[in-house]
Design a protein around this nucleic acid. Structure first.
Lengths: 236, 236
DNA sequence: CGCTTAATTGAACATACTCAAAATTTGTGG
DNA sequence: CCACAAATTTTGAGTATGTTCAATTAAGCG
């Protein structure tokens, strides 16, 4: 299997990604980022970085979908964050100078750029507006993490799986046929919700029987979103 | 019961707290913070801010101990963070402009200062070094939150409670008699570990029988820390 | 001293996990 | 394109962990 491919992406000055944190940078700053930039193609399932390793820079998803997960001692995975096109990865490790505390794996074929630590830190030091957006980003991530903590700590599996589907929908969107634009294994679905494969299978199958979703081969079609929200029992 | 007391604390320029995020500020900046500062005494159990409310500023613990917790729909609490002397509270809500996503309650009689949103934001905008320390702080909090997520998701109650004791020891320290310098109810202990009161009671009682800790009235004495670490089954 | 809150204990119960086995799908090389 | 291997999905049954509920004892406080 081909593990990695050098590819060409446009320089950051010409990147079309709208919701990227780098959008607010000046052309000059973007050029500085681009100088050290490397772009790679990652096949579905490939790992971008491993928990425990030290970062040489940070990653920016040019196009693709990524899960960030931690491994428990029994080998069971827990997804702590999901990221899509335009989002950055591994910035926490760069900011703190520590090793990665989680592993990033691509969920579908993806194009991901790599930016050097130094050019990132330089911008961070020189551009306070950029620092403030990083702060916003961290704040959001922290909020989500703490909310997920409450969910896993207190909600039953069924509610968590319903919420997982809704989160995936929010994050990655649906196609014209109301289908989730992403194929996950049942195990991966369980790893997000914090349940075992078997529980994920049984619960997703229940949703199917209840006509909340429809399983179309590998794809999940959303048939009754209000009901799904009700099942998820979302408070805020 | 007296709910709150205006008190006098030294101006920020003369604050003796060593590990505060404000230490790196210039005297001028500290003075600007002090201008709008209010200080209050909070009795054990009093709430500093409530989940859902909007912030007028942020809090800095002059001396004391605070838990930050979220409430599930069954009324069960989950502690998401602990804070002690010198630490700041409620900064996430200020940074994002959103409402508080958790409730802060003092765990023992505390003196807490209140700084205005504006003066905080002003420093944030003008002092990039300060922004960078906020980034560091958020990074740490996020790391802890994600690690707690993995724990609650995958570790059994016994391990989580052992780790809870170790976290409390790290955070708040032991006195000369190896006793935890803080009195918590069994319920609060459970709220940190993510278990019910009954499970907390039974497990803490087990630790006592196993001579890992000793229960001295309301206080917990640490008798065998290596064994506690082993029970907690800590990986990193 | 009485009242409220906290701690403790026991027993029943439920949720979700583990384990095992079968069916199905997917991927790969011939 | 088929055949085989590997991975994934599915189903069932048993089980464990930790919860819920209820009742009792102890502690704290005005």
């Amino acid at each position: 299997m081909i593990r990695k491919n050098k590819i060409d992406t446009p320089p950051c000055t010409e990147c079309k990604n709208k919701n990227s944190i780098f959008c607010i940078l000046s052309d000059e700053e973007k050029e500085n980022l681009s100088v050290s930039k490397g772009s790679n193609f990652y096949q579905k399932g490939q790992v971008v970085f491993y928990e425990g390793n030290y970062p040489h820079g940070l990653f920016c998803i040019h196009k693709g979908k990524v899960k960030i997960s931690k491994l428990g001692d029994e080998g069971k995975e827990q997804v702590v964050r999901l990221a899509g096109t335009g989002e950055i990865l591994g910035y926490r490790a760069v900011l703190s100078g520590e090793s990665y505390k989680a592993t990033a794996t691509v969920l579908e074929d993806s194009y991901i750029c790599h930016l050097s630590k130094d050019s990132f830190n330089k911008i961070l030091e020189e551009n306070n507006v950029f620092s403030l957006s990083i702060i916003k980003l961290l704040s959001q991530d922290l909020k989500n993490s703490e909310s997920q903590l409450l969910n896993i700590s207190q909600k039953p599996a069924r509610e968590r799986l319903a919420e997982t589907l809704l989160i995936l929908k929010e994050k990655f969107g649906l196609d014209e046929d109301n289908q989730l634009d992403l194929v996950l294994t049942r195990r991966e679905l369980g790893d997000i919700a914090g349940v075992t494969v078997e529980t994920a299978i049984r619960t997703i199958s229940d949703f199917n029987k209840e006509n909340v979703i429809a399983i179309k081969g590998k794809k999940i079609q959303f048939k009754n979103i209000p009901k799904l929200i009700k099942i998820a029992n979302i408070i805020d």
